[in-house]
Nucleic acid binder design. Structure first.
Lengths: 341, 341
DNA sequence: AACGTTATCGGGAACGTTCTCATCAAGAAA
DNA sequence: TTTCTTGATGAGAACGTTCCCGATAACGTT
């Protein structure tokens, strides 16, 4: 029932714990006979080293923490998939935390992590988060941290992001080339890096085609559906309503689509839509949704690799120069944005 | 930079570790002045108890392991969401493992978990898994385990499942009432409990309406899309091809829909479709997909509650009688299965 | 004056490992 | 013979806590 320990083996075999420990890890200075004896006994009674004792001794847990806004979100669950794959291969465990877009919740999670049950941290900032001093402090205390997707300039460490500017630019340009001139942009929390970068890409595309930028066409949304209803209403009641919408995130794209449908607005005829989303069902939506897809799996893999390198390098105290890795997005054009024929 | 320990405090304040420890946990037998001194010092230098040391001492980690086939799957990510919510509230951490439907991978994960870095285990079996002796052994060794969704009769512990029989029965009956008489069933691995129960529900519905059961209409699939292509081809090349399909799981429903579309088969006219899926986009698919939705979030919550109760009861060694909790499914009827008007 | 209380505190074992130092016998070199 | 290697093993500290036992002083009781 209970797991056997090195002490138990030592007692049973009339050896010292030192000898057993060495025999188990195949030290050369142990008599082959003794070694065999110990190993066979360990085998027989299914000895497993206690990872917690190891952790205490070596002051590391071989596990990493991951804080995401929402696990039940295709983008993030794909990222976590990537993280898990790499971590698994390198012998680390993945401990999941959700911030639910809440600063307070994120803060509490960080506190847990600060009492280092984990060797490193992978985090994508919550929508509410405007102050990352706690994260910085943790980093300064020596915790290896890699930020992904929703990052911050205020902290100097590795970051892995999508090329949000390019993605938004290309998507907006596509809408323009399809003849749209009044393009709205529904995006997430204004604090988020992804938001800022995408807004920039959106504006840059408008500028390139000399289309005036109208602040009223840029809407910041949290993720509730009532909110989406409100936003769409606002946009439609403009004297000059939009003929195209660029939407950010899986949830917003879906919400936007649903809301427009209830209002019997034809897509793409009346309004074209492009989403930033990793929905696998995007091609089978009605209408098939044009989307900017992000390399979510790769983002998870890359982030995990960087973090684990950081963790393992830390011990050898090689100084590191931090970098920001930008992954390419891809615009997949489908019915929701094809007007011209 | 480094975290401070009780020893550090003791040294700095010229006290013993015992006193510091007691002061920190507010023991009555400590002089209020001393207590105040210690607490202020701890506060100032941001003392955090080392959870690993606690774990070693108390022989528990305050974290639970979760093994799911695939985290990047709406159903499971919703379940994990529920698990995380409960665990968070009760002060436990969630460690994620994926089996990728592979028995070997599941087995390796179980091995990791066996060297108990976790206090309990939540698991949904892999599609390949036919032999759960390892899981049973782990359970017999005293590891609290709760199975969810994909369970097994061979192990006696708490289980949380959807009413798969009822779900499949209702869905099949719905197709029959819509006039379908030749109903195929595309399902998952034959080893899985969910598969067996749903097949039973499907057959029971056919029996009720005295429709003959044709083994050729029941297809077991893994999750690759080539496989789906093959299955659909087989079904269509029957002398008596199906006019309705009941599909299990998010992935299969989506794959089935996509494949039928490429073959230009009209839904629901030529073939009606009902999926077992938790896709949020189901209502916006083309056509809107009739689905049996499972209470995934609740399943996660319930499972976590049961497991944590088990863990905390274990210490007081109150004997437990194990139960299987069945959660209700809901059939949401949409365009993909409505023929009659 | 001898003893019991009470209030505070310290010593040290224990959790499971690893690792640094011994220790000790046997054989080799002087 | 004496000293030096070499091979094989054990003792014990350390990682950070908690907790069981004392220990010590300052009192109060007889």
């Amino acid at each position: 029932m209970e797991l056997i320990t090195i002490k138990d083996i030592a007692k049973a075999l009339n050896l010292s714990t030192s000898t057993v420990s060495r025999a188990l890890r195949g030290s050369y200075e142990i008599n082959p006979d003794t070694k065999k004896l110990v190993i066979e006994y360990a085998e027989k009674y299914n000895y497993r080293p206690n990872p917690i004792a190891l952790s205490l001794k070596e002051n590391k847990s071989r596990s990493i923490g991951v804080i995401v806004p929402e696990i039940d979100n295709p983008f993030f669950s794909q990222v976590i998939n990537g993280i898990e794959a790499i971590s698994y291969n390198r012998g680390y465990h993945v401990v999941i935390f959700q911030s639910h877009e809440s600063f307070e919740r994120e803060s509490i999670n960080l506190k847990h992590i600060a009492s280092r049950r984990v060797d490193g941290l992978l985090i994508s900032l919550a929508g509410e988060t405007n102050d990352i001093s706690q994260l910085k402090e943790l980093h300064e205390k020596g915790m290896p941290i890699v930020l992904f997707d929703r990052v911050s300039d205020e902290i100097n460490t590795h970051k892995v992001i999508s090329d949000n500017f390019e993605g938004a630019f290309t998507a907006t340009e596509h809408l323009i080339r399809e003849g749209r001139r009044r393009i709205a942009h529904i995006t997430a929390s204004p604090y988020l890096s992804i938001t800022k970068e995408r807004v920039k890409g959106y504006i840059a595309a408008l500028n390139k085609y000399e289309i005036p930028v109208d602040k009223a066409m840029i809407k910041y949304s949290n993720y509730s559906s009532e909110n989406m209803e409100l936003i769409i209403d606002e946009l439609l009641s403009e004297t000059n309503p939009p003929d195209g919408i660029l939407t950010v995130s899986d949830r917003l794209a879906l919400g936007c689509l649903a809301t427009l449908k209830t209002k019997n607005i034809t897509i793409p005829e009346q309004i074209s839509i492009v989403g930033f989303t990793n929905l696998k069902a995007a091609s089978m939506l009605e209408p098939a949704l044009t989307t900017v897809v992000q390399p979510s799996l790769q983002m998870g893999q890359r982030s995990a690799e960087l973090l684990l390198d950081l963790i393992e390098r830390k011990s050898s105290s090689i100084p590191t120069t931090y970098q920001t890795f930008k992954l390419y997005t891809e615009l997949i054009i489908r019915d929701s944005s094809i007007v011209s024929i």
